[in-house]
Write a protein that binds this DNA or RNA. Structure first.
Length: 478
RNA sequence: GGCGCGAUAGCAAAGCGGUUAUGCCGCGGCCUGCAAAGCCGUUUAGUCCGGUUCGACUCCGGAUCGCGCCUCCA
């Protein structure tokens, strides 16, 4: 029985889908104006793992992860680079696909781009205006009137009073209330725009605000009411709060609710379960673009194997903070090496998992408990120990099969152990290693241990570790 | 200032009201020509102060410290 920590309820809840056997999952994806950093990697890996586990649990999952390809930063960056917006966004979408593939992330079912859903956004904004939840300001911007939505703050736990008390929002004279947020930005010089019926000084021309994108795309692709919505913790407020306000107001029966806190429409819940993953940190501070303390995925992959990075992410619970450092990555690498080492030299075949088997059952209990990957990984180490002791092919097959469910341990162990990190060994180099191993074994046979140790040292200095066993000598990268 | 989250051994990180988490590192042993890998054993815990309880790392209250959101942000 799968339990999910629901931010909306602030507790773990048994997961019950809206339609039996099916799950609609929406995750806020990237704004594509730069390379993805490790924070983005965490979102991708975490929700990849969530969707994998839901599928393993027998659900037919429709996983939507959007791409924000129109926004202030994108426009600014494209202008700086002297390229078109499409050139810029396509470049970074390609880079993102490349990075996520390396991390073992399965492509979401649908990856909608905001620019392809502007019509839906416009009709949603129109509905909000018609129902009295939004208004056109004198400059042509369209704002959402937060006072008119009684449930505002239910996700983030903030009340309008609290928000006003700590108000740091710049006063926009076009807004009726400082908390109101923009749905449609009236066109400005040198900016792309779409036609709309909202009127104003620019005849309605403009572009959508960020929040409306997700409301429009999620409702069009998954329906007005769907199962799970995920994203980083920083999106909880205001982004997700605003999505709820938009979607539930637009889809409710309430019409023309004035500035009261009671709208009497039919309840029209947008999402049943809200999931938020924790941040990646550097020196105990959030990794972010604005702080400038971020590491891009591709930078990290120059130094570490992508599977090590995935393992590093899964080693912590998805809601916990995750500190990034070389030491932690090295630690993750050593741990993953242990798992691969256990599988080395065994011909492991793909098997169907027997969920009655005790370790498989423990793995399932862990994953069913709000995707507790650290505990699930502990089960894998238990199996690795068993494989090391008994060389049981059944245990090895189970280890590989369970790990595969969370996107780990699917490569050939030797290939992983010998080719990891930046040093993709060349054929020449491999041949050289093999020759040196033969020379060393000859030296060993003639009891010339000084020569044998010299060769081992030579290779060790080149980052290659030799391991003798009854089956012969093998090597791996340090 | 408002709201929220966290504090576990040298490092990382989980569960659990009483029974070995797990990985890395350290130490002892086995194995090995010696190593490495592996196996066996083992040292380091639960920020502080109260309370509940036969019993608390686990529940409750308080303090301290750290982090996040309140502005674009995964």
């Amino acid at each position: 029985m799968l339990k999910i920590y629901n931010t909306l309820a602030r507790e773990k809840q048994v997961f019950t889908p809206i339609v039996a056997g099916k799950v609609g999952l929406y995750v806020c994806g990237m704004t594509v104006y730069d390379f993805c950093h490790l924070g983005h990697a965490r979102v991708m890996v975490v929700f990849d793992t969530v969707s994998r586990w839901l599928r393993t649990s027998g659900y037919e999952v429709t996983y939507v992860r959007n791409i924000t390809d129109i926004d202030d930063k994108i426009i600014k960056r494209a202008n700086e680079n002297g390229e078109t917006i499409t050139q810029l966004t396509q470049r970074f979408i390609d880079a993102m696909d490349e990075d996520s593939a390396k991390l073992g992330v399965i492509r979401p079912t649908i990856e909608p781009k905001a620019t392809e859903f502007v019509d839906g956004m416009i009709s949603m904004i129109s509905a909000l205006i018609d129902k009295g939840f939004a208004y056109v300001a004198d400059n042509g911007d369209v704002f959402y009137s937060v006072n008119n939505f009684a449930g505002y703050g239910k996700l983030s736990g903030k009340s309008l009073e609290d928000l006003r008390a700590g108000e740091r929002v710049e006063v926009d004279t076009h807004k009726k209330d400082p908390m109101d947020f923009v749905l449609w930005k009236s066109v400005k010089p040198n900016e792309p725009s779409w036609d709309s019926p909202f009127g104003g000084p620019n005849g309605g021309k403009g572009r959508p605000g960020w929040h409306i994108e997700c409301s429009a795309m999620s409702s069009q692709l998954l329906g007005k009411h769907f199962d799970i919505h995920g994203g980083g913790q920083d999106l909880q407020f205001p982004h997700h709060e605003n999505e709820i306000a938009q979607s539930e107001a637009a889809h409710s029966e309430a019409v023309r609710v004035e500035a009261t806190h009671s709208h009497d429409g039919q309840p029209c819940q947008m999402v049943n379960y809200w999931m938020h993953n924790g941040f990646v940190r550097v020196d105990d501070e959030k990794m972010s673009k604005s702080l400038g303390n971020f590491f891009t995925i591709r930078t990290v992959l120059e130094q570490y194997d992508a599977e090590v990075v995935r393992f590093f992410i899964l080693r912590a619970h998805y809601r916990s903070p995750l500190n990034y450092s070389d030491q932690h990555l090295d630690d993750a690498k050593a741990a993953l090496n242990r798992l691969y080492t256990a599988l080395r030299g065994l011909s492991v075949e793909a098997v169907a998992i027997d969920w009655q088997q005790s370790q498989a059952a423990s793995f399932k209990v862990a994953m069913d408990d709000d995707f507790n990957t650290p505990e699930a990984l502990a089960v894998l180490f238990d199996l690795a120990n068993e494989v090391n002791k008994t060389k049981s092919l059944a245990s090895a097959a189970l280890l590989k099969a369970l790990a595969g469910l969370i996107g780990l341990l699917q490569r050939d162990p030797d290939e992983y152990l010998q080719g990891q990190a930046n040093a993709n060994i060349s054929a020449d180099e491999a041949l050289n290693v093999d020759q040196l191993i033969i020379q060393r074994n000859e030296a060993k046979l003639s009891k010339n241990f000084a020569e044998a140790d010299r060769i081992r040292k030579l290779l060790a200095d080149a980052g290659i570790i030799l391991e003798d066993s009854s089956l012969g000598t093998t090597w791996r990268r340090a």
